[in-house]
């Protein structure tokens, strides 16, 4: 079995996705969770471009990738703003410390 270039990219996508999700499960620090989300986003953007490459619509794929980059940077920025406020309020970024709302 030989791996083609698209297969390789797909493996990269899956790896980034897996790493990102794994991090979301295990990481407790909010800033690092943002990093994990960004890793996830990299995977998705790569997948978009791959899809464009495979379907011969690279222009449209790039346009979509751009939108995703902007949207997720915005989410990251909002996440950081929330994290900063959490830090101010609670003096901690740990998810177990911000788990007062439960049950």
């Amino acid at each position: 079995m030989t791996l083609t270039f698209p297969d390789l990219v797909l493996i990269a996508v899956m790896a980034l996705f897996g790493i990102g999700l794994y991090a979301l499960l295990t990481i407790r620090n909010l800033i690092r969770i943002i990093v994990a989300l960004q890793v996830l986003v990299k995977g998705v953007i790569l997948l978009i471009i791959l899809a464009g490459y495979l379907t011969n619509q690279i222009g449209m794929a790039q346009s979509m990738a751009l939108t995703v980059i902007v949207a997720d940077t915005i989410v990251a920025v909002l996440g950081m703003a929330l994290a900063v406020q959490i830090m101010r309020k609670k003096k901690s970024l740990d998810t177990s410390d911000i788990a007062e709302l439960k049950r």
Binding site: A12, L46, Y53, Q62, A65
Partner: peptide, 8 residues
């Protein structure tokens, strides 16, 4: 870089 290689 990968994206560049894919033509994007």
């Amino acid at each position: 870089w990968l994206m560049y290689l894919l033509g994007a």
